[in-house]
Amino acid sequence: MPTLETYLGTILWHYVPNMPLAIVFTILFCLVSVAHAWKMFVTKTWFCIPFLIGGIFEVIGYISRAAATNATGSLIPYIFQAIFILLAPVCFAASLYMVYSRVVRAVHGDSFSLISPRWATVVFVSGDWTCLNIQSSGSGLLVHPKQVAIGTYIIVAGLALQVLMFVVFMFCCLNFNSRFRAHVAESGATSDVPWQACLNMLYSTSLAILVRNIYRVVEYIMGKDSYLQNTEWPTYVFDAALMFLVMIGFFIWYPSQLRPTTRDSMIELTADGESSAEHGRTVKPSMGLSIFPLFRIFKLLTSESDR
């Protein structure tokens, strides 16, 4: 029978992880990740690569939780589940940020967005990368008993920054939605882009990730002796289940119509509902070089936004 053990005299777990539950979520995340991989390759939506990576992180995390059931004194499964489950939503967020930029570009609604789509991708994804580095650095310190408190503070800082970014991101989405909807109602313009469905998907998935991040902030702030860290069910309710729903929602309302190859077929919204081609002009998003070295990290994933 599984029992709680210690690692060099330090208690890693305050409960014995539920193996059947961990296996169930491992299978669920594995299935939905395979579905996302298939969808991504079929539609060639390469900007969804971070989302797929997030799904793989979830699989690794819950496999590690299952393995920890009979090895509560082993450091590797404990660290693996802590790091990969913690960082998966950061990867999900990266693709959500890029979806917003592509929605704006697809309907040629740059003037209705608080941040230009090109810079929205750079700013939010760079911020996401920062959150990833902060949280992974904090997670790395959890392996050292004397630095657990410092690691926890760093993780909380990374999560708090991610919460702030999501609030700003959702405000940008809502502001664009309101202004663009007013433009459509006033002009009677039409588009073959399902922009409202994509925005609704962003609202629901972003809200789920926001709730999860707030839960994690509260969990780490309350400390090792808190109810949240001494009870397993909140992890599955406020993290595993929410992230699984995020992956399901993203798959159902997959942003495949936002890939660059279909952008030429989009109808540009104008005051009289005519396309720019009928006005004898072609819209070409401006090209530009990144001015910060960090942005080059995302060049492959964001280059489609600048085409």
Rank of each mutant, 00 (worst) to 15 (best):
Q135K: 10
W13D: 08
D110S: 11
V143P: 03
S64V: 11
S137V: 01
S113K: 00
V163C: 05
C48V: 11
A185N: 09
I154L: 01
I85M: 10
M40K: 08
V104C: 09
C48E: 13
N175S: 15
N18L: 00
I23K: 07
S116N: 08
G288H: 13
I63A: 07
V156T: 05
F29M: 09
V143G: 12
G249M: 08
F57G: 07
G55Y: 04
T302P: 00
R65F: 03
G280F: 10
D192C: 03
V184F: 08
A185S: 06
S178M: 10
F80C: 15
I23D: 12
R105A: 03
I248C: 05
Q147R: 15
G9V: 11
D225H: 14
L174W: 08
A189H: 07
V148S: 09
E5N: 10
Q196E: 14
E232V: 06
L202C: 03
A189T: 00
P234A: 09
E304P: 04
R102D: 06
R212T: 01
T6G: 15
L202I: 10
Y215F: 11
C172D: 05
G61C: 03
P17T: 06
A241D: 02
S305Q: 05
L202K: 01
P117S: 13
L87F: 04
Q135C: 08
L245Q: 07
R281E: 01
V24S: 13
S226E: 06
I297C: 12
S178L: 13
M19N: 12
S256Q: 09
R118V: 12
K299D: 15
V107K: 00
I252V: 14
L141K: 05
Y62I: 00
F80W: 09
E274R: 01
D110I: 00
D110Q: 14
S286T: 14
V211K: 01
I49N: 03
V104S: 04
H36I: 07
